[in-house]
Design a protein around this nucleic acid. Structure first.
Lengths: 332, 332
DNA sequence: CTGTTAGCGCCTTCAT
DNA sequence: ATGAAGGCGCTAACAG
């Protein structure tokens, strides 16, 4: 067993060429004589050479690393975004270095600093809430930055997502057209979830435009979950029994609402309308498919990578809107 | 705006000290005079210096990177493992570089090569199915390797997880004690999911030990999902109507089974027992909580990091069993 | 407590 | 088509 890992120099010596020739062959740069290439490749095999990208990046001042910052792994939407990022990334030979902020801006700043220290080729960040220092670091880094999920604010570089305010507004319009008038809202803690707040605002605005307002709301202080949705609807029905439709902060919550109805013998739609957000599989697999708004998280991840890897041209759009789609479903 | 990023040399010049002094201060190495430190720190601030870890790692022959390889982000269990890894990791100042194989061993080999090129401090890999070349690279790399999720095979270095064979066996024993005799199995494609197969084997073994065998099975050819579980149970009931309990390959599938029952007016447990695996929140939030086996994916991630960061001592265990727990629930 | 001297392994530039 | 020299930014190993 060799004690120190083989280097370019070792390969070069074995193949009887210079380091740079080996380097070129391994990177497919410049013209190489076929037999030289063969000789070198077999030397690489023979000693089991693994290139050292740390050295390579230092010398060439550029890495194949991409920084990725997300607030959470618990909320299913972020793994979905990550999936899009991963797939798009490894088609282009980049590797993601992932950091999870747990919705903490100070932590985000620290993580960002660590990521930047690796000189990533670009940075993908979910959300728009950053400390001033984070923003400054990002701007000074000189690399492309994509902010994901929402497009309701001015991005540092580019933004990829959808307008959650408009999604909330569309929810209100749709349900009003369905004939609902006495709206209830079941939500979770907003501190962490700026986008849920934007949807709420959009909903309220749609109601106001129709001369309506929320008849009741039940907002928990934890993060969203099926349990929180169950409890939330139970509380809403207690405090505001007259409500004819419940809008949930997202599908997890809404599925909980459906379960509450099942347990209480309430028939969704006939007795009470239920509406979610996200379009998760679980909602569509329910005995009665959930009425909701579908967004394409996977696509957000993919598009972010694709746009950020394309050098910015002057005419490139700074905001990429993936849109959303109302799923009529059977619960509202 | 400076065109090239500030370096240690710039900070040193500004503070009137040598590079190494700045380096030491930034890494809290060795004794430093308080006023020197102060001078240097303000120089760092002044020019907005961000350390370059690429250079640092090359010089010190060691990175704070940790390779992480998982098969999928779609199956909720892997984000949960990732969460454990992330939390444990950033308490120790390491950064994960994540790769997703999509259950493809050849792709895993490629990704492994790329990860190894960054000279990570250690490697965490979900699963035991690797190409020979992957195994060789891992062994030759000289770094610690943790294989996650299952412990039913011989690890390269250490394994963290639970015995899925034993979990399947426990499922069988438990349900037999509950009085069930006519077992049905509803599963998904095993090609990707070796662990589901191990649970199946354990189940069959428990049945055999009691003089029983599967009365029917319905195995889909896609990955697990709520929809697949719904359809699977529908098919099972058609082909084997006499079955008195359905064991599902996991909770997603079992929740689908519960939905099928709801839609068909079948009462879980009274009419038909339903049993899952994983202990997901969604199962426990159902109107009737799902009977299942709970495993702690988060803990698997955490423990993997903790064990792998502790230098191997001779007496350190190579297999870390996080165990599992039967959740009686209300569906079996 | 601080500095000097040498690289780490590779790639860029300029030759040949 | 190939090579030689030099340096990327930082840190280990010794001084002093």
């Amino acid at each position: 067993m060799r004690k120190t890992a083989p280097t370019l120099a070792n390969v070069a010596a074995l193949a009887g060429v210079s380091q740079i020739t080996v380097s070129r062959i391994l990177r497919n740069k410049g013209p190489i004589a076929p037999d030289t290439r063969a000789r070198v490749m077999s030397a690489v095999q023979a000693i089991g050479y693994v290139p050292n990208r740390v050295a390579g990046s230092l010398a060439s001042a550029g890495s194949n690393l991409m920084g990725v910052v997300i607030p959470s792994l618990s909320n299913i939407v972020f793994p979905e975004v990550l999936r899009g990022i991963h797939e798009a990334l490894d088609e282009s030979g980049f590797q993601p270095v992932v950091a999870v902020t747990d919705y903490d801006m100070a932590r985000e700043e620290t993580l960002l600093r660590s990521l930047l220290a690796w000189k990533p080729a670009a940075m993908i960040i979910a959300g728009f809430d950053h400390t001033d220092e984070s923003r400054r670091m990002l701007e000074n880094s000189g690399i492309r930055v994509a902010e994901l999920m929402d497009i309701d604010a001015e991005p540092i570089d580019i933004a990829v997502g959808l307008s959650h305010r408009r999604a909330g507004h569309a929810t209100g319009r749709h349900l009003i057209e369905c004939g609902y008038r006495r709206f209830g809202y079941v939500g979770h803690d907003w501190a962490a979830d700026r986008r849920a707040r934007l949807r709420y605002d959009g909903l309220c605005q749609a109601l106001a435009e129709a001369g309506l307002s929320l008849a009741g709301e039940s907002v928990g202080d934890g993060s969203s979950s099926v349990f929180a949705g169950r409890d939330g609807l139970a509380r809403l029905r207690q405090s505001s029994p007259a409500v004819d439709v419940a809008v949930f902060s997202n599908d997890d919550m809404a599925v909980g609402g459906v379960f509450h109805c099942m347990a209480e013998g309430i028939v969704p739609k006939a007795d009470l309308g239920l509406f979610g957000f996200n379009g998760l599989e679980i909602g569509q697999a329910l005995p009665v498919p959930l009425s909701t708004i579908r967004s394409d998280r996977y696509r957000i991840g993919r598009l972010a990578v694709e746009h950020i890897l394309n050098p910015a041209r002057g005419d490139a759009p700074r905001i990429i809107d993936v849109g959303f789609e109302i799923v009529a479903g059977g619960t509202a």
